[in-house]
Amino acid sequence: MKAYEIVTEPIDPQRYADYVLRPEAGAVTLFTGHVREWTRGIRTLYLAYEAYIPMAEKMLDRIGAEMEEKWPGTRTAIAHRIGELKIGEIAVVIAVSSPHRRDAYEANEYAIERIKELVPIWKKEIWENGTEWIGDQRRKPEEGENP
């Protein structure tokens, strides 16, 4: 595995937690983002993720570098899956280890916020009655509200 990667197969989060653990780490935070069945009353059947893979991995790597600068002593691994994902499956995993817990929480949350700003990955929701690329300007069926 790479510390920052786009993958097409199911994610085993424990591999990323193991990757960041070191003898000086007292705390590991592991975030997993999962496909939700219900979002604002609309039932999702499954999701499809697409990425601009080389740029996405470069941006994940950059986020990791930002984290090491902001929280020295942390170690990070991030993976995002693309392709079709079923309900409950893991889309993204972020593992952070740190000597102290505060940094592990803060750095981990920073990572997911930056991923959502920066990394060229797109989510398409597939419902019973339609599909939508999330993040774009089109409206959802039956709702008329942007996510």
Binding site: K116, V119, W122
Partner: peptide
């Protein structure tokens, strides 16, 4: 040149 619409990873 890549056109990047609003991203929605995570």
């Amino acid at each position: 040149a890549a056109l990047i619409p609003p991203v929605s990873g995570g």
